[in-house]
Amino acid sequence: IRCIGVSNRDFVEGMSGGTWVDVVLEHGGCVTVMAQDKPTVDIELVTTTVSNMAEVRSYCYEASISDMASDSRCPTQGEAYLDKQSDTQYVCKRTLVDRGWGNGCGLFGKGSLVTCAKFTCSKKMTGKSIQPENLEYRIMLSVHGSQHSGMIVNDTGYETDENRAKVEVTPNSPRAEATLGGFGSLGLDCEPRTGLDFSDLYYLTMNNKHWLVHKEWFHDIPLPWHAGADTGTPHWNNKEALVEFKDAHAKRQTVVVLGSQEGAVHTALAGALEAEMDGAKGKLFSGHLKCRLKMDKLRLKGVSYSLCTAAFTFTKVPAETLHGTVTVEVQYAGTDGPCKIPVQMAVDMQTLTPVGRLITANPVITESTENSKMMLELDPPFGDSYIVIGVGDKKITHHWHRSGSTIGKAFEATVRGAKRMAVLGDTAWDFGSVGGVFNSLGKGIHQIFGAAFKSLFGGMSWFSQILIGTLLVWLGLNTKNGSISLTCLALGGVMIFLSTAVSA
């Protein structure tokens, strides 16, 4: 259960009878995928790494000078000259100064003066180019299975845990398959586009800190620079940016070097996208990844198990997540596992009318040892309800109150669905055939309105939902006002479609 501690969480529900669903994975976010007769899966884009970055340009932001020398000439005696002028490691300046009897010249006039100092770069920052084909995306998957609280967001041991898996995709191999043991396998067909235009970005490294910066900004930095990788004795261009020549006297000129420019660069980098280094690879934390999940090989585990009949206890007080759902960790005293956990939410304890829904599909106890633990997640209705676990006299209950409203949740879900469709863009549509167009249209309606429909009408039977949709269509056909007619027709059509397409 990876997503319960992530604030940016998206719930995606598969269409009834569908074998695939489109998701948008982004750094700092987590996606929970639910479908009829399929286990619930949490998917998170953990890291995006980039390798084989080529150094484009380096800037010196802290330097020192040494070996200063000057040469001067009297008027009419030609130009002052130093051998160091031809050495690229030196920074030199030529000027004219007033000369006369007082400073060793027989004539009054302008004399030539040249001053040089050896330039040494102490600290530099480097910009590297990123090729999209060198990106690698690491995705962690977790099935809502027989897990306890100690396994949440624990990325170790996934090789031997059938509840978890790690997959890596690249532009050259965008397809992967996550093996989930008894739950089958989940196929991923990803489109490795981060949403960032790397043709316009460089990877900047300064003092063990890293950013993504725009090329134009990078090339306009007014500091000494050299092109390409460091060859040991780089040729620094624009050395004068960190060196200041003071007022010249008759035979000498003082040279000083400016202080470190790291603070000024940090100020200019305010708002830039931060990154990290992992050995020789860069780690990015921006952008998104679009994936199509193929769920035809994914299956529920323990459908044929019998119900657990022994007593359950709450190991922890049920807690609310950031998303309005409830996490419950229970301990089973029996030894008759594997068995299914009898769990439901009810409005009252007399009729036990089921409300809400299970995020953890078909929760089971897989071990036959005593005191096995299991964590599950529920989506309670707004208002008061009861969490009921167990059967008969051994069942345990917990009162729950959820604040908020169904309308607010439906609106929030619609906005999130619209954002998801905007990110998917043209990849969500198939114009290759008439059937493809209608299929894409259905998927689009489901992406945007599916979660809201589930919130508003999830407790009704599909037949009642179709009746309401048919009534809206009838009202649309018999209303003389054009805008009201079109609105009723659209709402009725969407409702009829979703009542037959969205899983219960």
Rank of each mutant, 00 (worst) to 15 (best):
A268Q: 13
V317F: 15
V41N: 02
R175M: 12
Q36Y: 08
G150D: 15
I396W: 03
G5S: 02
F449T: 10
K409P: 00
E240Y: 14
T170F: 06
V213P: 04
L424Q: 10
G182R: 05
T325M: 10
H266S: 13
E168C: 02
G282R: 06
T487R: 03
R9L: 02
A227D: 07
S485W: 09
S146Q: 15
L284W: 14
A264E: 08
K316M: 13
W429I: 07
E329D: 15
S368Y: 05
M295A: 07
I468R: 00
E177T: 04
T205C: 04
V23S: 00
K297W: 02
A248D: 03
E370G: 09
D278E: 13
C190L: 03
Q36G: 01
V347S: 00
L475K: 10
T170C: 07
A319W: 06
Q89D: 12
Y203H: 12
K251T: 03
V257K: 05
A361G: 11
G287D: 08
D220H: 08
V56E: 12
K124C: 10
E13A: 02
L378M: 10
M15F: 15
L456R: 08
D10W: 08
I387N: 13
L424M: 14
D430E: 08
R164T: 11
S142R: 00
I466H: 07
P380W: 07
V114I: 13
G425H: 09
I130Y: 08
P381T: 06
D278Q: 14
P39E: 07
T500W: 12
N8S: 06
I139V: 15
E370N: 07
G492S: 01
N172H: 15
L107Y: 06
V423K: 11
S461Q: 10
V347P: 15
G181M: 09
L498P: 13
G302Y: 04
A310N: 05
P363D: 04
T327E: 04
L472A: 13
S66V: 14
G383P: 03
G184P: 05
F453H: 13
K443W: 08
T414E: 03
G436Y: 07
T231W: 02
G383E: 11
K316T: 07
H210F: 07
I4T: 11
K290R: 15
N371H: 15
M206P: 05
G111N: 04
T126F: 02
F314S: 08
V494S: 11
T360H: 06
K290Y: 04
V437Q: 05
T32N: 03
M151L: 13
T95I: 09
H249F: 10
H144F: 10
I341W: 13
S58H: 14
G337S: 10
P222T: 12
N154C: 03
V473W: 06
C92K: 10
K118Y: 02
K281P: 00
A452P: 01
K246T: 10
G417R: 02
T360R: 01
V317K: 03
F245K: 05
R252I: 07
D384G: 07
H226E: 02
I466E: 11
L293C: 02
P192I: 03
S112P: 00
A176L: 03
A361N: 05
V303L: 05
F183D: 09
V213G: 09
K215H: 13
T126A: 09
W20N: 06
F314R: 00
Y81V: 11
K316P: 01
D384F: 12
F11Q: 07
T321K: 08
T170N: 06
A80D: 01
S51G: 13
S499I: 07
A501G: 01
N8C: 06
D426E: 13
M295Y: 13
I65F: 04
H235Y: 10
Y61R: 01
I445C: 14
H266R: 13
K480L: 03
I221N: 08
G392N: 11
G425M: 10
K443V: 06
F312R: 04
N52A: 01
T479M: 15
H214P: 02
T313D: 00
L96A: 02
L307Y: 09
V502M: 13
W225M: 07
P342C: 10
L201S: 01
A275S: 06
K373F: 06
S66D: 04
N481K: 13
A428F: 14
V256Q: 15
Q261T: 08
I4C: 09
D10F: 02
A346N: 03
S368F: 10
V169C: 05
I43Q: 08
S149C: 10
K373Q: 00
L322G: 00
N478C: 10
E191M: 11
T179R: 13
A227K: 03
G228S: 03
A422T: 09
D296F: 09
K395S: 11
K480M: 08
G492W: 00
G145P: 03
A451H: 07
S16M: 08
D379Y: 03
T179V: 04
F119S: 08
Q77P: 00
S461Y: 11
F312Q: 08
C190K: 10
K316W: 12
D37V: 00
A54T: 10
L424H: 06
S129W: 05
R420A: 06
E262Q: 08
I130P: 12
S385F: 09
T205G: 14
V317I: 14
L322T: 01
D278H: 15
F497D: 12
D220K: 09
T315A: 13
H148R: 05
G425T: 06
A504C: 12
G334Y: 08
L489A: 13
A333L: 11
P354Y: 06
D220R: 03
I466A: 12
P174D: 09
T414G: 01
V303R: 06
V46N: 05
D426V: 08
S129F: 05
S503G: 04
A346Y: 13
V256I: 15
V330P: 05
D161H: 12
T194I: 12
N172S: 09
T360Y: 05
V31D: 07
Q77N: 13
S129A: 15
M345N: 02
C116V: 08
K316C: 12
S385C: 13
F497Q: 12
R416D: 04
L486F: 15
E320Y: 02
V434A: 11
S286L: 05
N8E: 09
E274W: 06
K84G: 13
E191F: 08
L489N: 04
